[in-house]
Protein backbone atom coordinates (compact mmCIF):
# COMPACT_ATOMS: atom_id res chain seq x y z
CA UNK A 1 0.00 0.00 0.00
CA UNK A 2 1.34 3.37 -0.96
CA UNK A 3 0.81 6.52 1.08
CA UNK A 4 -2.75 7.56 1.57
CA UNK A 5 -3.46 10.83 -0.20
CA UNK A 6 -6.64 11.21 1.78
CA UNK A 7 -7.29 9.99 5.28
CA UNK A 8 -10.49 10.71 7.15
CA UNK A 9 -10.86 9.92 10.86
CA UNK A 10 -14.08 10.17 12.82
CA UNK A 11 -15.45 12.91 10.60
CA UNK A 12 -18.66 14.49 11.87
CA UNK A 13 -20.79 17.40 10.75
CA UNK A 14 -23.95 18.55 12.44
CA UNK A 15 -26.07 21.40 11.23
CA UNK A 16 -28.20 23.43 13.57
CA UNK A 17 -31.64 23.44 12.06
CA UNK A 18 -33.76 25.50 14.43
CA UNK A 19 -33.14 29.10 15.34
CA UNK A 20 -34.67 31.42 17.87
CA UNK A 21 -34.17 32.14 21.51
CA UNK A 22 -36.97 30.09 22.93
CA UNK A 23 -37.06 27.18 20.60
CA UNK A 24 -35.38 23.98 21.50
CA UNK A 25 -32.16 23.62 19.57
CA UNK A 26 -32.22 20.81 17.06
CA UNK A 27 -29.28 19.32 15.25
CA UNK A 28 -29.03 17.30 12.10
CA UNK A 29 -26.08 14.94 12.06
CA UNK A 30 -25.43 14.86 8.33
CA UNK A 31 -22.17 12.96 8.71
CA UNK A 32 -21.81 10.97 11.87
CA UNK A 33 -18.27 9.78 12.54
CA UNK A 34 -16.95 8.24 9.35
CA UNK A 35 -13.39 7.05 8.66
CA UNK A 36 -11.64 5.88 5.52
CA UNK A 37 -8.46 6.38 3.55
CA UNK A 38 -7.60 6.51 -0.14
CA UNK A 39 -4.13 5.74 -1.54
CA UNK A 40 -2.51 7.58 -4.40
CA UNK A 41 -3.93 6.86 -7.84
CA UNK A 42 -6.97 5.02 -6.48
CA UNK A 43 -10.69 5.73 -6.49
CA UNK A 44 -12.82 5.52 -3.38
CA UNK A 45 -16.55 5.79 -4.00
CA UNK A 46 -19.23 6.77 -1.56
CA UNK A 47 -22.65 5.41 -2.47
CA UNK A 48 -26.00 5.90 -0.86
CA UNK A 49 -29.42 7.41 -1.32
CA UNK A 50 -30.20 11.10 -1.19
CA UNK A 51 -29.87 12.48 2.32
CA UNK A 52 -27.31 9.91 3.46
CA UNK A 53 -24.58 12.54 3.82
CA UNK A 54 -22.42 11.66 0.83
CA UNK A 55 -22.32 15.17 -0.62
CA UNK A 56 -21.66 16.69 2.80
CA UNK A 57 -18.68 14.35 3.10
CA UNK A 58 -17.31 15.64 -0.21
CA UNK A 59 -17.76 19.23 0.84
CA UNK A 60 -16.07 18.60 4.20
CA UNK A 61 -13.06 17.07 2.53
CA UNK A 62 -12.64 19.96 0.13
CA UNK A 63 -13.28 22.27 3.10
CA UNK A 64 -16.17 24.08 1.51
CA UNK A 65 -17.66 23.57 4.95
CA UNK A 66 -15.91 23.05 8.29
CA UNK A 67 -16.26 19.74 10.16
CA UNK A 68 -17.79 19.70 13.62
CA UNK A 69 -15.43 16.96 14.72
CA UNK A 70 -12.81 14.64 13.30
CA UNK A 71 -9.74 14.88 11.14
CA UNK A 72 -9.10 15.17 7.42
CA UNK A 73 -5.54 14.47 6.29
CA UNK A 74 -4.59 15.40 2.76
CA UNK A 75 -1.16 14.31 1.62
CA UNK A 76 0.05 14.21 5.22
CA UNK A 77 -1.45 17.51 6.29
CA UNK A 78 -4.36 17.92 8.68
CA UNK A 79 -6.79 20.45 7.24
CA UNK A 80 -10.00 20.26 9.24
CA UNK A 81 -8.99 23.01 11.70
CA UNK A 82 -7.18 25.29 9.24
CA UNK A 83 -8.27 28.90 8.89
CA UNK A 84 -9.49 30.15 5.54
CA UNK A 85 -6.24 32.11 5.06
CA UNK A 86 -4.16 28.96 5.49
CA UNK A 87 -6.23 26.91 3.07
CA UNK A 88 -4.79 28.27 -0.20
CA UNK A 89 -2.33 25.40 -0.47
CA UNK A 90 -5.01 22.83 0.25
CA UNK A 91 -7.27 24.30 -2.41
CA UNK A 92 -4.56 23.70 -5.00
CA UNK A 93 -4.38 20.04 -4.14
CA UNK A 94 -8.08 19.29 -3.80
CA UNK A 95 -10.46 20.24 -6.57
CA UNK A 96 -14.12 19.45 -7.12
CA UNK A 97 -16.20 18.42 -10.09
CA UNK A 98 -19.91 19.03 -9.59
CA UNK A 99 -23.05 17.26 -10.69
CA UNK A 100 -24.84 19.90 -12.69
CA UNK A 101 -22.70 21.22 -15.52
CA UNK A 102 -25.41 23.80 -16.18
CA UNK A 103 -25.25 25.35 -12.71
CA UNK A 104 -21.56 25.03 -11.92
CA UNK A 105 -20.20 27.12 -14.81
CA UNK A 106 -20.66 30.90 -14.82
CA UNK A 107 -22.83 31.73 -17.84
CA UNK A 108 -21.24 35.16 -18.24
CA UNK A 109 -17.69 33.89 -18.49
CA UNK A 110 -15.90 32.57 -21.54
CA UNK A 111 -14.56 29.04 -21.25
CA UNK A 112 -10.98 30.37 -21.23
CA UNK A 113 -11.75 32.55 -18.20
CA UNK A 114 -13.55 29.74 -16.39
CA UNK A 115 -10.54 27.45 -16.73
CA UNK A 116 -8.11 30.32 -15.98
CA UNK A 117 -9.73 31.32 -12.71
CA UNK A 118 -7.72 28.94 -10.49
CA UNK A 119 -4.54 30.16 -12.22
CA UNK A 120 -5.49 33.77 -11.52
CA UNK A 121 -5.96 33.00 -7.86
CA UNK A 122 -3.06 30.70 -7.17
CA UNK A 123 -0.32 31.70 -9.60
CA UNK A 124 1.32 34.80 -11.02
CA UNK A 125 1.50 33.54 -14.60
CA UNK A 126 1.25 35.96 -17.51
CA UNK A 127 -1.72 35.79 -19.89
CA UNK A 128 0.46 34.08 -22.46
CA UNK A 129 1.64 31.39 -20.06
CA UNK A 130 -1.91 30.89 -18.88
CA UNK A 131 -3.18 30.50 -22.43
CA UNK A 132 -0.67 27.81 -23.30
CA UNK A 133 -1.59 25.88 -20.13
CA UNK A 134 -5.27 26.27 -20.93
CA UNK A 135 -5.02 24.99 -24.49
CA UNK A 136 -2.95 22.06 -23.26
CA UNK A 137 -5.61 21.24 -20.66
CA UNK A 138 -8.47 21.64 -23.14
CA UNK A 139 -6.79 19.17 -25.44
CA UNK A 140 -6.35 16.70 -22.59
CA UNK A 141 -10.08 16.73 -21.79
CA UNK A 142 -11.07 16.54 -25.45
CA UNK A 143 -12.07 20.11 -26.31
CA UNK A 144 -10.73 22.14 -29.27
CA UNK A 145 -8.69 25.29 -28.96
CA UNK A 146 -11.18 27.53 -30.74
CA UNK A 147 -13.83 26.71 -28.14
CA UNK A 148 -11.93 28.70 -25.48
CA UNK A 149 -13.64 31.88 -26.66
CA UNK A 150 -17.17 30.50 -26.37
CA UNK A 151 -19.61 30.72 -23.49
CA UNK A 152 -20.81 27.74 -21.45
CA UNK A 153 -24.33 27.78 -22.93
CA UNK A 154 -22.90 27.01 -26.36
CA UNK A 155 -21.86 23.55 -25.20
CA UNK A 156 -23.75 20.31 -24.63
CA UNK A 157 -23.99 18.73 -21.17
CA UNK A 158 -21.09 16.35 -21.80
CA UNK A 159 -18.84 19.10 -23.12
CA UNK A 160 -19.69 21.28 -20.15
CA UNK A 161 -18.65 18.51 -17.82
CA UNK A 162 -15.34 18.41 -19.74
CA UNK A 163 -14.93 22.13 -19.04
CA UNK A 164 -15.60 21.48 -15.35
CA UNK A 165 -12.96 18.74 -15.37
CA UNK A 166 -10.44 21.02 -17.15
CA UNK A 167 -11.02 23.70 -14.50
CA UNK A 168 -10.45 21.14 -11.75
CA UNK A 169 -7.26 19.79 -13.32
CA UNK A 170 -5.54 23.04 -14.27
CA UNK A 171 -3.83 23.35 -10.86
CA UNK A 172 -2.52 19.77 -11.14
CA UNK A 173 -4.30 18.67 -7.95
CA UNK A 174 -3.63 15.41 -6.13
CA UNK A 175 -7.22 14.71 -5.18
CA UNK A 176 -10.41 15.22 -7.15
CA UNK A 177 -13.71 15.16 -5.31
CA UNK A 178 -16.31 14.30 -7.96
CA UNK A 179 -19.85 14.73 -6.69
CA UNK A 180 -22.24 12.86 -9.02
CA UNK A 181 -20.25 14.00 -12.10
CA UNK A 182 -22.23 11.94 -14.61
CA UNK A 183 -25.72 11.86 -13.12
CA UNK A 184 -27.09 14.64 -15.30
CA UNK A 185 -25.83 13.11 -18.55
CA UNK A 186 -27.32 10.72 -21.10
CA UNK A 187 -25.87 7.18 -21.06
CA UNK A 188 -23.98 7.60 -24.32
CA UNK A 189 -22.29 10.74 -22.98
CA UNK A 190 -21.95 9.36 -19.46
CA UNK A 191 -19.70 6.61 -20.75
CA UNK A 192 -17.49 9.17 -22.56
CA UNK A 193 -16.96 11.12 -19.33
CA UNK A 194 -16.31 7.96 -17.29
CA UNK A 195 -13.71 6.85 -19.82
CA UNK A 196 -12.11 10.29 -19.71
CA UNK A 197 -11.92 10.24 -15.90
CA UNK A 198 -10.29 6.81 -15.98
CA UNK A 199 -7.74 7.83 -18.62
CA UNK A 200 -6.85 11.02 -16.76
CA UNK A 201 -6.38 9.07 -13.56
CA UNK A 202 -3.86 6.78 -15.23
CA UNK A 203 -1.98 9.57 -16.98
CA UNK A 204 -1.87 12.08 -14.14
CA UNK A 205 -1.87 9.65 -11.17
CA UNK A 206 -4.98 11.30 -9.79
CA UNK A 207 -6.79 10.16 -6.68
CA UNK A 208 -10.57 10.29 -6.81
CA UNK A 209 -13.23 10.54 -4.20
CA UNK A 210 -16.24 9.61 -6.28
CA UNK A 211 -19.69 10.34 -4.90
CA UNK A 212 -22.62 8.68 -6.62
CA UNK A 213 -25.99 7.04 -6.15
CA UNK A 214 -25.58 4.90 -9.26
CA UNK A 215 -24.11 1.51 -8.40
CA UNK A 216 -23.38 0.49 -11.97
CA UNK A 217 -21.29 3.63 -12.47
CA UNK A 218 -19.59 3.09 -9.12
CA UNK A 219 -18.65 -0.46 -9.98
CA UNK A 220 -17.08 0.72 -13.18
CA UNK A 221 -14.87 3.43 -11.70
CA UNK A 222 -13.94 2.39 -8.13
CA UNK A 223 -11.17 0.51 -6.43
CA UNK A 224 -12.94 0.54 -3.11
CA UNK A 225 -16.38 1.54 -1.90
CA UNK A 226 -18.07 2.87 1.20
CA UNK A 227 -21.84 2.47 1.49
CA UNK A 228 -23.46 5.24 3.52
CA UNK A 229 -26.80 5.26 5.30
CA UNK A 230 -28.02 8.19 7.40
CA UNK A 231 -24.60 9.72 7.93
CA UNK A 232 -22.70 6.52 8.64
CA UNK A 233 -20.66 4.09 6.61
CA UNK A 234 -22.40 0.73 7.03
CA UNK A 235 -20.08 -1.32 4.85
CA UNK A 236 -16.81 -0.65 3.10
CA UNK A 237 -14.26 -2.70 1.26
CA UNK A 238 -12.80 -3.46 -2.14
CA UNK A 239 -15.05 -3.19 -5.16
CA UNK A 240 -14.79 -6.89 -5.99
CA UNK A 241 -15.78 -8.00 -2.51
CA UNK A 242 -18.65 -5.58 -2.05
CA UNK A 243 -20.21 -6.35 -5.40
CA UNK A 244 -19.71 -10.11 -5.37
CA UNK A 245 -20.63 -10.75 -1.75
CA UNK A 246 -22.41 -7.85 -0.08
CA UNK A 247 -22.80 -8.47 3.65
CA UNK A 248 -24.86 -5.62 5.08
CA UNK A 249 -28.61 -5.99 4.37
CA UNK A 250 -28.67 -2.40 3.10
CA UNK A 251 -25.90 -3.06 0.58
CA UNK A 252 -27.74 -6.19 -0.54
CA UNK A 253 -30.97 -4.27 -1.01
CA UNK A 254 -29.24 -1.43 -2.87
CA UNK A 255 -27.59 -3.86 -5.25
CA UNK A 256 -30.78 -5.74 -5.91
CA UNK A 257 -32.75 -2.53 -6.58
CA UNK A 258 -30.65 -1.55 -9.58
CA UNK A 259 -32.58 -2.36 -12.76
CA UNK A 260 -30.39 -4.49 -15.01
CA UNK A 261 -30.65 -4.04 -18.77
CA UNK A 262 -31.25 -7.70 -19.48
CA UNK A 263 -34.89 -8.76 -19.96
CA UNK A 264 -34.05 -12.45 -19.64
CA UNK A 265 -32.71 -12.04 -16.15
CA UNK A 266 -35.30 -13.04 -13.59
CA UNK A 267 -34.24 -12.38 -10.05
CA UNK A 268 -35.65 -12.14 -6.61
CA UNK A 269 -35.56 -8.57 -5.63
CA UNK A 270 -35.21 -7.27 -2.13
CA UNK A 271 -37.65 -4.40 -2.05
CA UNK A 272 -37.14 -2.22 1.00
CA UNK A 273 -40.22 -0.98 2.77
CA UNK A 274 -40.79 2.67 3.49
CA UNK A 275 -38.67 5.76 3.06
CA UNK A 276 -35.39 6.94 4.46
CA UNK A 277 -36.15 8.07 8.05
CA UNK A 278 -35.62 11.75 8.81
CA UNK A 279 -31.98 12.40 9.73
CA UNK A 280 -33.19 14.95 12.31
CA UNK A 281 -34.86 12.23 14.26
CA UNK A 282 -33.02 9.02 13.35
CA UNK A 283 -34.19 5.64 14.66
CA UNK A 284 -32.61 4.26 17.80
CA UNK A 285 -30.23 1.31 17.71
CA UNK A 286 -29.19 0.41 14.20
CA UNK A 287 -30.42 3.27 12.01
CA UNK A 288 -31.39 0.84 9.28
CA UNK A 289 -33.61 -1.38 11.44
CA UNK A 290 -36.87 0.34 10.39
CA UNK A 291 -36.38 -0.83 6.80
CA UNK A 292 -34.23 -3.90 7.31
CA UNK A 293 -35.78 -7.20 6.15
CA UNK A 294 -33.57 -9.10 8.58
CA UNK A 295 -33.95 -6.91 11.67
CA UNK A 296 -33.82 -8.59 15.07
CA UNK A 297 -34.82 -7.32 18.53
CA UNK A 298 -31.32 -6.20 19.40
CA UNK A 299 -31.21 -3.93 16.31
CA UNK A 300 -33.91 -1.71 17.77
CA UNK A 301 -31.95 -0.80 20.85
CA UNK A 302 -28.23 -1.38 20.41
CA UNK A 303 -26.25 0.40 17.75
CA UNK A 304 -23.84 -1.97 15.99
CA UNK A 305 -20.25 -0.82 15.63
CA UNK A 306 -18.26 -0.88 12.43
CA UNK A 307 -15.93 -3.83 12.73
CA UNK A 308 -13.41 -5.49 10.45
CA UNK A 309 -14.38 -8.83 9.01
CA UNK A 310 -11.13 -10.53 8.18
CA UNK A 311 -12.63 -13.39 6.25
CA UNK A 312 -14.76 -11.14 4.10
CA UNK A 313 -12.06 -8.44 3.86
CA UNK A 314 -14.23 -5.49 4.76
CA UNK A 315 -15.77 -3.32 7.45
CA UNK A 316 -19.40 -3.99 8.31
CA UNK A 317 -21.67 -2.55 10.95
CA UNK A 318 -24.46 -5.07 11.50
CA UNK A 319 -25.54 -7.25 14.43
CA UNK A 320 -26.21 -10.14 12.10
CA UNK A 321 -22.56 -10.27 11.13
CA UNK A 322 -21.28 -10.04 14.66
CA UNK A 323 -23.42 -12.82 15.90
CA UNK A 324 -22.82 -15.43 13.25
CA UNK A 325 -19.10 -15.24 12.67
CA UNK A 326 -17.84 -13.60 15.79
CA UNK A 327 -14.43 -15.22 15.76
CA UNK A 328 -13.55 -13.56 12.49
CA UNK A 329 -13.96 -10.07 13.80
CA UNK A 330 -11.39 -7.76 15.20
CA UNK A 331 -12.84 -4.63 16.63
CA UNK A 332 -11.02 -1.49 15.53
Amino acid sequence: MSNPILEVKGLRKSFQISNGMFRKQKFLNAVNGISFSVSEGKTFSIVGESGCGKSTTGRLISRLITPTEGEVWINGEEISRKKESELANVRKEVQMVFQDPYASLNPRMKVRDIIAEPLEIHTKLTKKEQNSLISEMMEIVGLSDYQAGLYAHEFSGGQRQRIGIARALIMKPKLIVADEPVSALDVSVQSQILNLLKELQKELKLTYLFISHDLSVVEHISDSIGVMYLGEIVESGSREMIFSEPQHPYTKALLSSVPIPDPKLKRDRIILKGDLPSPVNPPTGCKFHTRCPEAMDICKTVEPSLVYNKKMERMVSCHLQQETTDSNYIQI
Binding site: V187, S188, S191, N195, L215, S216, V217, H220, F243, P261
Partner: peptide
Protein backbone atom coordinates in the same frame (compact mmCIF):
# COMPACT_ATOMS: atom_id res chain seq x y z
CA UNK B 1 -24.62 2.02 -29.21
CA UNK B 2 -27.14 2.83 -26.50
CA UNK B 3 -27.17 -0.69 -25.11
CA UNK B 4 -23.37 -0.94 -25.21
CA UNK B 5 -22.80 2.33 -23.36
CA UNK B 6 -24.69 1.28 -20.22
CA UNK B 7 -22.32 0.09 -17.51
CA UNK B 8 -23.63 -3.26 -16.29
CA UNK B 9 -23.14 -4.57 -12.79
CA UNK B 10 -21.09 -7.74 -12.79
CA UNK B 11 -19.84 -7.14 -16.32
CA UNK B 12 -16.73 -5.01 -15.94
CA UNK B 13 -15.01 -3.56 -18.95
CA UNK B 14 -11.85 -1.49 -18.94
CA UNK B 15 -13.39 0.99 -21.34
CA UNK B 16 -17.06 1.66 -21.89
CA UNK B 17 -18.23 2.14 -25.42
CA UNK B 18 -19.98 5.36 -26.23
CA UNK B 19 -21.65 7.16 -29.12
CA UNK B 20 -19.64 10.08 -30.40
Amino acid sequence: GLIASVPKIGNLKEKLSSIK
